[in-house]
Amino acid sequence: MIPFVDLKAQYHSIKEEVDAAVLKTLESCAFTLGPEVADFEKLFAAYCNNTHAMGVNNGTSALHLALLAAGVGPGDEVITVPHTFVASAASIYYTGAKIVLCDIDPATYTMDPAALEAAITPRTKAIIPVHLYGQMADMDPIMKIAEKHGLVVLEDAAQAHGAEYNGRRAGSVGHLAGFSFYPGKNLGAAGEGGAVVTSSDEYARRVKMLRDWGAERKYEHVLKGYNMRLEGMQGAVLKVKMKYIEQWTEMRRAAAKRYDDMFAGTGVQTPKQMENRRHVYHLYVIRTPERARWQEELTKKGIQTGIHYPYPVHLLPAYEDLGYKEGQFPHSEKAGKEVLSLPMYPELTGDMQAEVAEAVTALQKSLVHS
């Protein structure tokens, strides 16, 4: 069996350090926020080439609180893309603002700046470009459009730890960014976790209050806040993993290069890394019009795969009330029917990839000759 992701392999590679960090937290009894979280926040802010990082309980909360810190609320509109995990849209819904969608660039699966500009109305308050699969959205035109219309840009960087655009790190280009540390992410906690990153002292102050019941000091509730703090145990684990994030990123990129080389000349539609971007390959996503059959055949051969994501937001039953219809976002809809994620993680070996590539290439040949 070739797993889609192997969390045990990573844990065993740093087991002694992680176990020691967890035991230290247990001994300290600093279970919520605390010194380990504070240390991690400093490391992660620096890694993102930014000023502030505020740990929260998950990536969805990061997006939600970032929007609230930026003043988004009822009567406002926030634009994002349909081809994403539902959290990108849900975070907007939680603020009471209206979700507005625009289509993706089919080459990168990220926000199409031309479609973005067409979606702006007088009520638009913010934009959430999603850095999908490990590659950042086309941020320069997005930021220019935002500046032209006076809009806040919140990077959904849940899949983009360490990704770069024109030499700038994910989390340092927009006004705010939201990260996830879900276990399977490039930087994963031992459970749930997330962070908001920003260069704004005021946004940082508001997020710190919002994650902790809206209080600047205990029992002094300045804002209507939430219980969304990062646990001390997760801060301790993430602090250890910060030592290895770049090593693991380069291992992912090397694995992606091996896949690219193995699929060269086969006709398999592989990910496209744009010249001005550093792709960190949270996922290695190919495309095929016969995805169901391919996934079934690969499963039979002991190769696990994933689909990210089969249903665009506007076609989900939960978001029917947005009023969009099938056909309005053709690139997102087509991607949803064709994308297939192959095994991808730092410890993936060349032999394992060769087995995957051989099976996928055989399926591609059968598709061509059918």
Rank of each mutant, 00 (worst) to 15 (best):
A45F: 00
D6E: 14
N49S: 15
T32G: 04
L43Y: 11
F31N: 03
K42V: 11
A45L: 04
A20V: 07
I14S: 07
E17K: 15
C29V: 14
T32M: 13
K24Q: 15
Q10F: 09
L7S: 06
T51H: 05
E17W: 08
G55A: 08
G34H: 00
F44P: 00
A38S: 14
P35H: 12
D19V: 13
S13Y: 03
C48G: 04
L7W: 04
E16G: 11
G55V: 03
E41S: 10
A45T: 06
C48W: 03
E17A: 15
S28A: 15
E27S: 11
T51P: 00
H12G: 05
E36T: 03
T32H: 08
V5F: 04
E17N: 10
F31H: 05
E16F: 02
S13I: 00
A53W: 00
A9L: 08
F4N: 09
C29H: 09
F40G: 00
A9Q: 10
Y11L: 13
C48P: 02
G34W: 01
F44Q: 03
N49R: 10
F44L: 07
D6R: 07
T32N: 10
G34I: 03
Y47R: 02
S28N: 07
A46Y: 04
A21L: 09
K24S: 14
Y47V: 03
K42E: 09
Q10N: 12
G55Q: 02
V5Y: 01
D19S: 13
T32W: 14
V22M: 08
L43A: 13
A9I: 06
L23A: 13
M54L: 14
I14R: 12
D6H: 09
A38N: 13
C48V: 08
D39P: 01
V18S: 03
S28H: 02
D19A: 14
N49A: 12
H52N: 04
E41F: 01
V37W: 00
F4Q: 10
V56H: 02
P3R: 11
T51L: 04
L23E: 15
L26N: 09
Q10V: 12
I14G: 02
T51N: 02
F4M: 15
E16H: 07
E16Y: 07
L43H: 09
E17C: 03
L43S: 12
T25Q: 08
S13C: 01
K8S: 14
T51M: 04
G34Q: 03
V56N: 00
N50V: 03
E16R: 09
C48F: 02
K24C: 09
K15R: 15
F4I: 11
G55C: 05
V22T: 10
F40V: 10
E36L: 02
I14K: 09
E27F: 08
C29G: 13
A21S: 11
E27D: 13
Y47G: 01
A45H: 01
P35L: 10
L33F: 08
V37N: 03
F44R: 01
H12R: 07
P35F: 11
S13W: 00
H52L: 05
E41P: 04
V22E: 06
S28D: 06
P3Q: 08
L33H: 05
K8T: 13
L23S: 14
A9N: 06
P3T: 10
E27M: 14
L33Y: 07
C48D: 00
Y11C: 07
P3S: 10
L26E: 13
N49T: 12
V5H: 01
